[in-house]
């Protein structure tokens, strides 16, 4: 594997965290299933790019890229599913969610109306980061040959993706390709900040709302339950026909 896929400095620093994640089977399978969704979503975005680009060569390359990503999604899903099947406590494992909005959250790609150079730069930076991180993951799953084989296979594709995106970027924007790559990096950083900020806001909001739930709601619970007890079962006559304002949201 080319040396460019040795992993970003930040990922190398975070290696103990990655080891903690991949060292546990439940966390590992959750990660694999998350990757499955992310790769599939990414594949669909790139597929969209293939459908809207006016450039025939890019259309073919995007299509190949999308097919790869969708296949990666399948590989991750099948491996995750195999691990789920081997676990007795699959319900607990599957229902524990990830607090960070991702996938179709703030990392959403905007394809329509975007010039190809912007997408190519974004894809190049994203593929390179993914390849670096997958290199580290591959080393951390030495005890799991099937999962390791998936990372090996995907890494081979990622090298192609990194290269064609860069080559095509220099073709479609020979003057500004470096600037586009730096811009894509800055955007990626900004999106990462937004993700963390949104997750933090969500966390604080959740804590505040939970506190409100236990402090403010109880007095109204009695009324709500009394109203429920008084509700007739079965059919309820609809009396509001004709006298409800068409402009009312109530």
């Amino acid at each position: 594997m080319p040396s460019v896929t040795k992993g970003a400095p930040l990922d190398r620093i975070m290696r103990p965290v990655h080891r903690w994640v991949w060292g546990d089977v439940d966390r590992r399978l959750r990660k694999l299933l998350t990757f499955a969704d992310v790769e599939t979503d990414g594949g669909r975005d790139i597929l969209r790019a293939a459908e809207v680009t006016p450039d025939p060569l890019l259309r073919r390359l995007y299509l190949e890229h999308a097919i790869d990503e969708l296949r990666h999604g399948e590989l991750f899903r099948e491996r995750g599913a195999a691990l789920v099947r081997a676990r007795r406590t699959w319900r607990k494992v599957l229902f524990a969610g990830n607090p960070l909005p991702g996938g179709h959250g703030l990392d959403d790609l905007s394809i329509e109306g975007q010039p190809d150079y912007r997408l190519l730069a974004f894809l190049h930076v994203a593929e390179k980061a993914a390849a670096g991180r997958f290199t580290i993951y591959r080393e951390l799953v030495d005890d799991d040959p099937e999962t390791r084989a998936i990372f090996e296979q995907i890494l081979r594709d990622e090298v192609f993706h990194m290269n064609y995106t860069y080559t095509q970027l220099t073709r479609v924007s020979p003057q500004g390709y470096r600037r586009h790559v730096w811009h894509a990096r800055a955007k990626r950083l900004w999106n990462r900040y937004l993700r963390i900020a949104a997750a933090m806001a969500g966390l604080f909001g959740g804590v505040a709302l939970t506190a409100m739930y236990f402090v403010l709601l109880p007095p109204f619970v009695w009324f709500a339950r009394r109203a429920e007890r008084r509700e007739p079962t079965g059919w309820t006559s609809i009396s509001r026909n004709g006298n409800q304002s068409p402009r009312s949201q109530y």
Binding site: V4, G7, L61, H124, G132, F160, M162, Y166, V181
Partner: peptide, 22 residues
């Protein structure tokens, strides 16, 4: 079709390295 694209589109690790190491 187009599986040959992977072989057809020239690439080099030098090209990737030029874009800045991750």
């Amino acid at each position: 079709p187009d599986r040959s694209l992977k072989e057809g589109v020239a690439w080099s690790s030098e090209g990737v390295a030029r874009s800045g190491a991750v």
